[in-house]
């Protein structure tokens, strides 16, 4: 059984069929790419996978369990974490606190424990600090732990968003255009980071990307979307040489 199994997924907004008959099967440990022209429905697929949109048709299975139509928070608990195309950090909180919010469901104490500052509060907070720093140091962000998230440079904000997603201990990580707005050097760094987190966290990754260098460089398999439908699917090299794909996406 593959880690993520999506069958015939579809969604309509009124009369508009944004995504139709979307199928994908991702094995554990894979790095999978989802590409397609602007408006093809890639982010809509992500929004359905994470429960932000409720799909009109189809089923989503994560590790054999049906997660279709569940609430976003429950889907995260089941093991799906994501980043956003337009970065969504908790801007008024420190870099460390952003990651600690990601750790929210793995380290617990009650509201009353927090208000009365019982010993458990100090123990758990210390453990959270250590764990959060450990995750941050993978990205080299540990030296910014005290900085407000909104004060980080753009590239670092993207990395922090990935760090926060990883803090929720996901099986599947969805990255929505991680290289958007990055210069070639930053993109290269990002490719190294993605390779590193696969190794360190053993997480399966599905990413949306426009940067073909990045896609062909790291993705093992690809799915191409066009007008809400799957145009081509398979090994990266095969898909990128598909004449249909070249015609629709890369230009003739």
């Amino acid at each position: 059984m593959s880690l993520l199994e999506v069958t015939n997924l579809g969604i309509s907004f009124g009369g508009l069929r944004a995504v139709d008959e979307f199928n994908i099967s991702i094995e554990e440990g894979e790095l999978y790419g989802l590409i397609g022209p602007n408006g093809a429905g890639k982010t809509t697929v992500f929004n359905m996978l994470t429960g932000i949109y409720k799909p009109t048709d189809g089923k989503i299975f994560l590790d054999g369990t049906d997660i279709t139509g569940k609430k976003t928070a429950e889907i995260n608990k089941a093991g799906v974490a994501r980043t956003f195309q337009n970065i969504r950090l908790f801007g008024d909180q420190s870099v460390l606190d952003n990651v600690k919010i990601g750790l929210h469901n793995s380290f617990k104490y009650g509201t009353a424990t927090g208000i009365f500052r019982l010993p458990k509060f100090f123990n758990t907070e210390k453990k959270m600090d250590e764990k959060a720093l450990e995750i941050l140091s993978v990205f080299g962000l540990d030296k910014f732990a005290d900085v407000l998230a909104s004060n980080l440079p753009y590239g670092k904000q993207r990395q922090l968003e990935i760090a926060r997603a990883l803090a929720t201990n996901p099986k599947l990580l969805l990255l929505d255009e991680p290289a958007a707005g990055m210069n070639p050097n930053e993109t290269k760094d990002l490719m190294n980071t993605i390779a590193l987190i696969r190794k360190e966290f053993g997480v399966t990754i599905l990413l949306i990307e426009h940067d073909m260098k990045l896609v062909s460089g790291i993705c093992e398999k690809l799915t191409v979307l066009n007008f809400g439908r799957v145009l081509s699917q398979g090994q990266t090299s095969t898909v990128l040489n598909d004449p249909e794909v070249i015609k629709a996406y890369l230009g003739e």
Binding site: T72, K77, F84, L89, I101, T168
Partner: peptide, 9 residues
């Protein structure tokens, strides 16, 4: 950020 808060569970 409510949506981000939901996606971290």
């Amino acid at each position: 950020n409510q949506i981000a808060a939901e996606t971290v569970g």
